[in-house]
């Protein structure tokens, strides 16, 4: 793990992964969307609203995956001061916020026709809304200080503390009775027919590859921002130095 803390090694791997992730994302979207929107069958109860499944579940999955990555790199930043850890967390946080927002929006647009309401305060929906605010809090905290290192530290602490919410989101539908239905993943399989599972997996893959590809682009931008800051700081200190 510590090997990847070296920015050069980290970016070498990230840049090597980028074309594959970007290409695969395009292929999976092109393959998945026609199946998700056209050829897959309507659900026996929910009719064509089941097509919301193919964007709602991937959005929610990415929201949790991104938060997990952000929490782990924040912990690595706090403990080992890995120079890439905070850069990665800063780069990925806006992505997590976007996907969490999309999961909430698609969920509301699904809830209204099926449940009969856009929103209820059950354990699943409430804990997921909290996830959205954790992302917003991270983004706000990271830029709240004059000194970016203090921002990194405060935001990292929030990210690690907020990771307690991840198991709550996942198990909320089992621990308490909720309006939201339980997980489709059961011991020994899925509670979903193959014809509906196929577009779901294609879209899950597409969303994941998209996230990895855009994350690499954001890493590059975030690293450049660090370099720019360092360059400016050395300029300032140079200009303040008395001429020899």
């Amino acid at each position: 793990m510590h090997r990847f803390a070296n920015p050069t090694t980290f970016m070498r791997i990230a840049n090597a992964v980028f074309p594959w992730a970007a290409g695969l994302a395009v292929v999976l979207f092109l393959a998945g969307l026609p199946i998700a929107l056209v050829t897959s069958p309507p659900d026996y109860q929910q009719g064509d609203t089941v097509r919301l499944f193919y964007i709602h579940v991937p959005s929610a999955w990415i929201s949790l995956l991104v938060y997990g990555s952000m929490a782990v790199s924040s912990a690595a930043f706090l403990i080992w001061r890995h120079p890439m850890a905070n850069v990665s967390a800063r780069a990925i946080a806006p992505m997590g916020a976007t996907f969490t927002g999309l999961a909430l929006i698609t969920g509301m647009l699904w809830g209204q026709p099926m449940w009969g309401t856009f929103w209820v305060w059950d354990a699943r929906l409430t804990s997921f809304l909290l996830l959205f605010f954790l992302y917003l809090g991270y983004i706000a905290l990271a830029d709240a200080f004059e000194d970016p290192e203090r921002g990194d530290k405060a935001a990292a602490i929030l990210a690690v503390v907020g990771s307690v919410n991840l198991p709550i989101i996942h198990f909320s539908v089992e621990w308490w009775n909720t309006l939201h239905q339980p997980s489709i993943v059961k011991m020994g399989g899925f509670t979903v027919d193959g014809s509906i599972l196929l577009p779901l997996f294609l879209m899950l893959g597409a969303f994941t590859c998209y996230t990895v590809a855009v994350w690499v682009l954001r890493l590059r931008a975030e690293l450049l921002a660090v370099k720019l800051r360092n360059a400016r700081m050395s300029e300032v200190s140079l200009s303040r130095m008395p001429a020899e």
Binding site: P41, Y44, Q45, V120
Partner: peptide, 18 residues
């Protein structure tokens, strides 16, 4: 005053259900 429908985690086409 309000009735909401709850659905389960089973998704399948009508033919499979039948």
């Amino acid at each position: 005053s309000e009735v909401l429908a709850k659905h389960d985690e089973n998704y399948m086409p009508k033919e499979v259900a039948d």
